[in-house]
Amino acid sequence: MSIMMNARTFKLFIVSLFMASAGYAASPFRGIFLSTDVFGYIYPVFVKDAYMSSEVSATVDINNRFLPTVEVGIGHADMVSQLYSIGYRTRAPYYRVGMDYNMQYESDNPGYIYLGARVGYTSFDYSVDAPPLVDPVWGDEAPVQFTDVPCRAVWAEAVAGVRAEVAKNVYMGWSLRYKYPLHLGPISHGGPWYIPGFGVGRGGVLGATYTISYYFNFVRKRP
């Protein structure tokens, strides 16, 4: 029974999408935003020893109100810290799914403020190459080199942002994100420093995105 219901729901979804693309106003699906986050490229220009991420996302517009979103990106760090000469390397994909809520869904303004939530996941390896530790009492040197240490992370994000139409179907927007780790492990050698998609830190951290989007409008405007 549940399989039949799921198949029926899926059929309704496909029919609704088709209706939307054909311009039927009755469909709740109004369009899709395809976006890329340029903040990940800008951040390392201003902050030394920074990490970088490249990210794209797809957001479905349901009644100009609910905005389910899938985000996929690659987080990348290959740096040596100035202060301690510690090398840190990682490169891995990350994924987020969630939904935004348009706080101004009844407004005709060419932009809106939204609140949302995400769940993020990444599985990655990281390597650390640091100067040896010198024992202050015995005088021995101990190497500090870890190669391809595996780790996985799951986190939650609270999102607040704005998105505004700057040209026909072209949008720009900012979002601020509070990220909180739900799972990190296995922890060895102190754990990772930078986590792709999450950032730096073990507790709650702040993040930001600056996105440029193209809106594929499913709803034809009547003359």
Partner: peptide, 15 residues
Amino acid sequence: NRPTLVSVDCGTAMF
């Protein structure tokens, strides 16, 4: 002995 990365900004330590 556990060589540990505290963070790239805070250094390493032996735990």
